[in-house]
Simulated assay, not measured.
Amino acid sequence: MDSHSLTTRGAVMAVSGKRVAFLLTKGVEQVELTSPREALEGAGATTVIVSPSEGTLQAMQGDWDHGDVFDVDVPLGEAGAGDYDLLVLPGGTLNADALRQDDRAVELVKDFFAAGIPVAAICHAPWILADAGLAEGRTLTSYASLETDLRNAGADWRDEEVVIDGNLITSRNPGDLDAFNAAIVQALQDTEA
């Protein structure tokens, strides 16, 4: 058996039985949902879409082109941080802007931080951290256009493909997905069983 098989098997064993919430709504950047989901499920985790959208939601490819439609697994009002081992916040301008204005979404993100559960945000998703009062004193990254907003919210913003600050993992854009995916799988492996 080669070392890749051992590593993969170890990852599957380490995250088997772990549950991951993806918090998103209409306008989510499709690849920022599908790529991390595939990485986590490939490692043995169970993923669920939590959303204020009812029934289904429309993903986007960039800001203008419609992507696929996805089923909502858990309504936002029924989701609790204690039910999950990791929270992933995919980007997409429309998605991120809508979620940061949704009090229930902001409260759920705060609950994950309060519980010390890992939170991973990519692209425009870190916007919600500013609205939740969670960016202050944190080192993070995001889509470049959010730099000023996040610095104004007290964050130490970095232009790096992945930034890990305690239980917070952030990346800039879809070009960083390989590093982002590796970091979130590792964070899930590091959580206690």
Rank of each mutant, 00 (worst) to 15 (best):
G67K: 06
V119Y: 11
G116R: 09
H124E: 10
A115W: 07
L140I: 09
L134H: 09
L87C: 11
V69R: 07
G62N: 00
V119D: 02
L86I: 07
E136R: 12
G116P: 06
V109A: 01
L140W: 14
A115Q: 15
G92W: 12
D68N: 14
G133H: 04
D65A: 10
L140H: 02
E107C: 09
L87F: 01
R100G: 08
L108C: 07
R151C: 12
T141M: 11
G133M: 11
V106I: 11
D111W: 03
G92Q: 15
T141H: 07
E107P: 00
Y84F: 15
W127Q: 09
G92N: 01
L57F: 15
G77L: 03
G82Y: 00
W64Y: 15
D103W: 14
F70D: 02
D68W: 12
G82L: 05
A59D: 05
P75K: 10
V74K: 13
A79N: 00
D68H: 04
A120E: 01
P118R: 10
A114E: 03
A132E: 04
I122W: 07
R138E: 09
Q101V: 01
F70I: 13
A105H: 14
G91V: 02
G82H: 00
P75S: 08
D103H: 14
V88K: 03
P126Y: 07
D71H: 11
F113K: 04
A114I: 08
Q61M: 09
N152Y: 12
D65V: 06
D102S: 07
L134G: 11
A135E: 08
E136C: 06
D85K: 00
L76F: 11
H66S: 06
V109C: 06
R100W: 08
V69M: 11
V109K: 06
P118F: 10
D68Y: 10
G67I: 03
V72D: 01
A125F: 02
F70M: 05
A130E: 01
D85P: 08
